[in-house]
Design a binder for these strands. Structure first.
Lengths: 348, 348
DNA sequence: ATGAAAGCGCTAACAG
DNA sequence: CTGTTAGCGCTTTCAT
C-alpha cells in the first residue's frame, strides 16, 4: 500500500491532513478522478462522483490551494497593498476589494506599506512572483509601490486621480474628486460666502491634487479670490492645528476640508475661537463617515463610494487576468454632496 | 541545456519569471546551493554566495513562497478571520496583527466573516489545510468561526472575554473589559450620580458580556439600583435610537455606552431632548477613537489597546507554532479611563 | 469516462 | 562546503 510511496513501516500519524491521494485510495479511484470531482469541470459518472464525495466527507479532506496554484491551476489569490488602514478611505476600499474578491473565490492577502518601503521590498511581499496585486494608492506610499512593482505583475489600483495627460491608466479606478470639490465649493458660494478656504489632506504628488483643483476651479469660475490652501494631515488634530491662526480672521466664513476628520478638528478649533457653526462659520468635509451625521453640528460632507470603488478595482483585475471573458465592471456611485447642519449663510 | 527539462525547441518566452533553477544554471552551481544562499541558514563560501547573489539580481529572481511552503519550508503565512472591519476594535486589532506578522516575515491573508457562515465554509477559506489562523472574535460570527475551525488548525484569537470557568484558553488574548467598565461606572458614581444606565453593544454569547458585568459589579458594590441594560448595535444611529425614550426621564443623569459610536448617537439624542452634556447628563464611551477627543463635548471614554492586543495575538501564534522557542509575549496596555468633557456632576 | 505520467518551485533529507 | 535525490499536493498534458 502507501500510494504516496514513502509511508514508514511503523508510522505514527504525521498529523498530515488527507490529500487527494488518500481520497483516491480509499475511494478506489485514481487521484486524477478525485481532482475531476473536486473541480467539477470535466464530466464524471454519477456513481463515482458520489463515492468520492462521500470519502471526502469521511476523511475531512480540504484542498490545498497552494498546491493547486503551484501546479498551474487558475489564479485565485490577490494581494492588496495599502498604507495606513486607519484611514477611512483606505479601509472602506479594502472592504470593497475583499468582498468582491471573496465572492469570486479569491483569497486575499494584505500588506501594509510604510513611508520607507524600498523598491525591491514590495515585490518580495507577494506569495509568488506573478501574483496579482491591487494597490490602494491614495497617498505617497501607495503611489510609490505602484511605480515600483515589476512590470510582469498584474496590477490594478484605486488612485486619487488619473494619470496626467493620457486620460488615465485603463487599470486604475478613481472617484471624481475634482468635480466633487467644485460642487462642495459652489454649495458654499451659493449660500453667500465671499470665498472658501481649504484645508488639504496630504498629497501623493507634486502636482496639484484633484480636490484642491476642484476647489480652485469653482472659486475662479465665480471670480472669487483663491486663498492659499492650508496643509493638513489626516487627523482631527491636524485640522485643529491647521486653522487655529486662521480663525482669528472673522472674514473667514467658510472652510472646506479634505476629509471629515480634518473637519472635526476644524469645528473644535472654531468653537474654541468663539465661532458658532454654522452661524459664524460653515464647515464642509469629505468622506461622509458614519459619525458625520451625528456630530454636533452634523457635518455637511461629500459622500464617497470607496467600497464600490474597491469592488470595481477587483473587477478590473479580473478583466485583466481574463481578457477574453469580456467582463463587465461593477458600477460605483459618483461623489454626492450631503448637506447637513454645518453649512449655512455667512453672518450678516 | 534545458535544466527544467521541457523547454520547447522553438520557445517564445513564456512570461514565466526566473526560478531557482534558472539562477543555478546561470551561476553554474546546483539548485540547492542557490536555495542555501537565499535562506542563509547553511554556510556557503563567500565566492559562490557573491556569484549567486549577482545572478539573482541580474535575472530579477523573486522567490515563490507557495513552493517554499509546499515543500515543507517554515510556516510563514497566517489568515485572519474577522467580521466587519468597519468596527474600530476589529480594524485596530487587525492592524496590530498585520504589523506583527509582517515584522516576523509572515504574509497575512484576511477573510471577512458574514453572519451566515456555515461551518465547513470557514476551513475552506484557508490557503492550505493546516494554515495558522488568527480570529478576531469580539462578536458572534467570530466566536462561531473559532468554534467551527477543525482541531488540527493552529489558531489563536482575540476575544471579548475569557472562556467561562477554566480561567481562559491559553491561545486567546483579551482586554479586561469587566474591570474597565466597573472603573468607568465608579467614575460616574463618584461624581455624584445616583446610578448609571448602560447601552450595550451586541453580545457574542448568551451569557452576560464582560462590560455589562463590570457595570453591574460597580453598581452593586455601591448599593445602587441596577437598571435594565439597553440593547444597542454598533453604530451612532443605534445608540441614538436606543436612548430616545429613556431621555424623557430626567432622573437619568449618567449613561455608559458600549462604544464611542453609541455614545455619539446618545449625545445627539440628548441634545435633541434638550439635555445639556455634561450639565444634565453625563456620557461615557468605550474605545477612545481618534475622533473622541474632538467631539463636542469631547468624550470621556475607556482607551483600549486593540493594536497591542493584535500584536500579542500574533505573538501567541508564533509561540504555538514554535513551542520550543519559548517566545516572550509582547505586552499590551490595560484599559485606561480618559476623562474628558462629557462627564461631570449631576444637576443640582 | 478514467488512468498514467510529468512537472510547478522549492526544501529536506542524504550523500560526498 | 556542495551536489543528488525524493518528494510537498495538485493540475496539466497525454493516453486509454
Amino acid at each position: 500500500m502507501g500510494v504516496t510511496g514513502h509511508t514508514p513501516p511503523n508510522d505514527t500519524p504525521p498529523a498530515r491532513s488527507a490529500s487527494i491521494w488518500d481520497v483516491a485510495r480509499v475511494a478506489g479511484v485514481s487521484q486524477q478522478t478525485v481532482s475531476r470531482v473536486i473541480n467539477g469541470k470535466t464530466r464524471v459518472s454519477e456513481s463515482t462522483r458520489a463515492k468520492v464525495m462521500q470519502v471526502i466527507a469521511e476523511l475531512g479532506y480540504r484542498p490545498n490551494r497552494l498546491a493547486r496554484t503551484l501546479a498551474g491551476g487558475p489564479v485565485s489569490s490577490v494581494t492588496v497593498l495599502t498604507s495606513d488602514t486607519a484611514l477611512f478611505g483606505a479601509a472602506a476600499t479594502l472592504r470593497g476589494m475583499e468582498e468582491a474578491a471573496r465572492a469570486a473565490g479569491f483569497s486575499v492577502g494584505i500588506s501594509v506599506l510604510g513611508p520607507g518601503t524600498s523598491n525591491t521590498d514590495v515585490a518580495l511581499r507577494l506569495n509568488r512572483p506573478q501574483e496579482p496585486v491591487m494597490v490602494i494608492a491614495y497617498d505617497d506610499p501607495g503611489e510609490r509601490a505602484l511605480r515600483e512593482l515589476p512590470p510582469d505583475v498584474p496590477v490594478t489600483a484605486a488612485v486619487e486621480r488619473p494619470d496626467d495627460g493620457s486620460g488615465g491608466d485603463p487599470w486604475q479606478v478613481w472617484l471624481d474628486d475634482r468635480a466633487a470639490a467644485a460642487h462642495a465649493t459652489r454649495h458654499l458660494l451659493s449660500l453667500g460666502h465671499q470665498t472658501v478656504h481649504y484645508v488639504a489632506i496630504p498629497s501623493s504628488t507634486s502636482a496639484l491634487p484633484q480636490r484642491t483643483r476642484g476647489w480652485q476651479d469653482a472659486l475662479r469660475a465665480a471670480g472669487r479670490p483663491v486663498p492659499e490652501p492650508l496643509r493638513g494631515g489626516w487627523t482631527p488634530r491636524s485640522g485643529y492645528l491647521a486653522v487655529r491662526s486662521l480663525l482669528a480672521d472673522r472674514s473667514v466664513t467658510a472652510i472646506l476640508c479634505g476629509n471629515d476628520d480634518l473637519a472635526l478638528g476644524v469645528m473644535r478649533a472654531a468653537r474654541e475661537a468663539g465661532r458658532d457653526i454654522p452661524g459664524d462659520l460653515s464647515v464642509v468635509g469629505f468622506d461622509d463617515t458614519p459619525a458625520s451625521a451625528y456630530l454636533h453640528p452634523s457635518l455637511t460632507t461629500v459622500r464617497l463610494d470607496f467600497e464600490g470603488l474597491g469592488r470595481a478595482c477587483f473587477g478590473l483585475l479580473l478583466r485583466r487576468l481574463q481578457p477574453e471573458a469580456a467582463l463587465s465592471l461593477p458600477a460605483w456611485n459618483e461623489p454626492e454632496l450631503i448637506v447637513r447642519e454645518s453649512s449655512g449663510p455667512p453672518p450678516a
